[in-house]
């Protein structure tokens, strides 16, 4: 049984043949589409390293079956920067040292982008910490992650205002 599904991945529309319905979105990205930025830390929705945006919402790609995502818009860590210009969240992660080994980082950044998009945490660090608690960082870069999100969000709001004006 093979299914052709339409996916828009990082802005690129593609039809993907799914020859095995067991394939998760994570394994599709990593093992078949050479998008290895998204990481597998637990494969069970317990660590957040595989976080991507599906239809603009952050989800664990390890617990999503590719075949059920026909028509979805997927954004991964590879699709966040504009050329050499980093997304404000990416830049802020570097600046605030919100990473060490870097393995959880793609998931942290995608989760952070999702969190900012949700618009519910505001500039309350405690809400950011809670909202980011689905992303484990074994190195312990949490303080930098929280700071990075606060900083990036403020910058994005400024840029947004600038565009509106």
């Amino acid at each position: 049984m093979s299914f052709d599904i339409a996916l828009t991945i990082n802005g690129l529309h593609r039809v993907v043949a799914i020859d095995d319905p067991r394939i998760t979105l994570l394994d599709l990205l990593r093992e078949r589409l050479d998008l290895t930025g998204t990481k597998k830390g637990c494969d069970r929705g317990q660590c957040g390293a595989c976080t991507v945006l599906v239809d603009d919402r952050r989800v664990n790609s390890c617990l999503a079956l590719a075949v059920s995502l026909d028509g979805a818009v997927v954004t991964t860590i590879e699709g966040v920067a504009h050329g050499d210009t980093l997304h404000p969240v990416q830049a802020a992660f570097i600046e605030n040292d919100g990473l060490q080994c870097g393995f959880c980082t793609p998931g942290q950044i995608m989760s952070a982008i999702g969190l900012i998009r949700e618009g519910l945490a505001g500039d309350d660090p405690e809400r950011i910490r809670e909202g980011m608690s689905g992303n484990l960082c074994r190195c312990g870069a949490y303080a930098g992650i929280t700071e990075a999100i606060l900083e990036a969000q403020a910058r994005m709001q400024l840029e947004h205002k600038g565009e509106a004006a």
């Binding site: 957040g48 919402r57 952050r58 989800v59 664990n60 617990l63 689905g134």
Partner: peptide
């Protein structure tokens, strides 16, 4: 419950 990612799904 769970995490933001899981609640989204």
């Amino acid at each position: 419950g769970a995490s933001a990612q899981l609640r989204n799904a």
